[in-house]
Design a protein around this nucleic acid. Structure first.
Lengths: 230, 230
DNA sequence: ACCTGAACACCGTTCAAGT
DNA sequence: ACCTGAACACCGTTCAAGT
């Protein structure tokens, strides 16, 4: 019978730590940061943890849950605004926090797309929701509007990251943009008179200008439009 | 040498039509309608067309382009509003058109998610953009705001479909929703005072009520907030 | 109870070779 | 020019079997 060689094989690798959900997620984040979410496969993650893919299913139910856990890990970096803010400052702070959230996801557009299909429920996400509600409250937005508004604001931020991020990263992003510009240009002035009129404005502004205008639009609407009586 | 049996093998299947991009897209839509977008794989589509997967790359560059073509096919069903509408009617018509677009994608949430990573440029999408611009124009919205607003409105509609659709379809949608409700409930009242205050409102209303409120918010904001001077 | 090897049932895309 | 068989390089998830 072959003798137990555990000590020897242990010396081969630094120190295989015991598996844990937190450890697996941390390694997943590391792979994502270095190579992108596409490379974070169950097989790759498992091999990084010196095990087989089946072992991961002890800690996560499936790929979607892993993506949710990764998101929450990233949100830990978000600085929660000082709850003492109030008065005139709330709007700028709110836009700042939303922009920070968007920036986190802009770096990982495919995570953003994955998150859209999720109902994130990690602690850091919950804290983000709380912070957003607090800022809207500080701005005097009625609680019902604030509650529905947070959904809208976060959805918009996530969707923007999914959309813009992919564009700047994808190989054929420029092709696609070109195709769209061309399609709009080819649209005859008689067939599409409204596009003809807006031609100059459709692609104006920087991404940053558009994003902050959109947040402005959202916040203005949320604080203006009443929720239907329940 | 084996004789040419082309006529015989032709009798085996009804009448294999010659391949074409339009034909391939039509079959892709059919598979999607019957079995969902997940089943629309290059391999499956090819076998439905009696060929190998490589042949499809003569007509589409990749999977993303196929999804774009499928979207445009679906948008053909959208009824363009009468350009004669104006005055008070524009807002209702606008919400109606956006709701129709959303409904098309709500039936296929994974297509919605795919579309978020795209810059659709098919003729039907271009016509939709034109119609939306026309309605905003009829409502007296300045052209610059309308141009940026269309992006926002379509992005929101697409994201909503991606989000809601998946929820109602996914196997563990209820699990996820439960997890979120529980996470919000577990959030201590001291740790998350704003969630505590909004607890009753966070999940109030039907999906339909929320969607139309959100469109209302968007349209109000778009017609109110000026675009930065270029 | 916790873990995992091996298998199941697939993918998108490329490319050399055919017609 | 147009088309395709076969291969390349992978996937997520399950489950029977080990410890």
């Amino acid at each position: 019978m072959s003798p137990r060689r555990v000590p020897v094989s242990r010396r081969d690798r630094p120190a295989k730590p015991p598996l844990s959900r937190a450890g697996a997620v941390a390694v997943a984040v590391q792979i994502m940061r270095e190579e992108g979410l596409e490379r974070v496969t169950m097989r790759r993650l498992a091999s990084e943890l010196d095990t087989g893919p089946a072992s991961l299913y002890v800690y996560v139910q499936n790929m979607a849950e892993l993506h949710g856990a990764i998101l929450d890990e990233l949100l830990a970096d978000l600085r929660r605004p000082d709850p003492a803010v109030s008065g005139e400052g709330w709007r700028g702070t709110l836009i700042g926090l939303l922009t920070d959230y968007t920036r986190v996801l802009l770096g990982q557009p495919s995570l953003a797309r994955s998150v859209l299909a999720l109902r994130p429920s990690g602690p850091n996400y919950v804290h983000l929701v709380d912070a957003l509600l607090g800022l809207l409250h500080a701005g005097g937005v009625p609680v019902a509007q604030a509650a529905w508004g947070v959904d809208l604001l976060l959805q918009h931020a996530t969707a923007t990251a999914a959309e813009q991020g992919v564009r700047s990263e994808a190989v054929d992003a420029q092709d696609e943009q070109d195709a769209f510009v061309e399609a709009l240009h080819d649209a005859g002035d008689e067939d599409c008179p409204n596009i003809a009129r807006a031609r100059d404005e459709l692609f104006s502004g920087t991404g940053e200008q558009r994003l902050s205008w959109m947040f402005d639009v959202l916040i203005t609407g949320v604080s203006t439009v009443a929720v239907p009586a329940s």
